[in-house]
Amino acid sequence: MATELLLNKRLSRRTLNSLGRHAITTVDQVVEAYPERLLKLNGVGMTVLRDIERTLFPGQQFQPDSGRYKAWSEETSSYSNTDTAQQKK
């Protein structure tokens, strides 16, 4: 039963909804999908990933190599529209 520990009450409602749309309901399923597979799911972005990390992976923080997520890192002070415009070119 420990391997099927439900995520309820451990994560935010937003995160639970995002994971639930993809039938991810247990800690084991999240651990197995972390991080790359989670980020490929529709509705799971960096905000949801950070919620998962705070709860299930304390002290860890995935830093994607892709420039697409670079602006979301905590080291970046702000999100710039010029960065987005440059990426689209």
Rank of each mutant, 00 (worst) to 15 (best):
F62V: 00
T55Q: 07
L11F: 03
L39Y: 02
F57Y: 10
I52G: 02
W72S: 02
T25L: 01
Q61H: 08
K70D: 12
A71I: 12
E75R: 11
S78A: 04
T3S: 15
E53R: 05
G20S: 14
G43H: 02
V30S: 07
G67F: 10
A85Q: 08
R54Y: 11
L5R: 09
D83S: 15
N17V: 04
R68Q: 08
P35L: 11
N42M: 10
K89V: 15
V44L: 03
E53C: 00
Y69I: 05
L11I: 04
E74W: 04
P64R: 00
V27A: 10
A85G: 10
T82Y: 14
N81M: 14
L16F: 09
G59T: 09
A2I: 02
L38V: 03
K88D: 08
A2Y: 07
S73Q: 12
A85C: 14
N81G: 13
K40I: 08
T25W: 01
K40D: 03
T82M: 14
A2C: 03
L38C: 03
P35Q: 08
L39H: 02
W72H: 13
G43D: 11
N17R: 08
Q61I: 11
D65P: 10
G59E: 01
S18M: 00
R50A: 01
R68M: 11
R37C: 07
R68I: 08
R37P: 10
P35I: 14
Q29A: 07
A71S: 07
N81Q: 14
S78I: 03
L19F: 01
R13C: 11
K40P: 09
T3D: 14
T26W: 04
A23D: 10
D28I: 05
N8G: 03
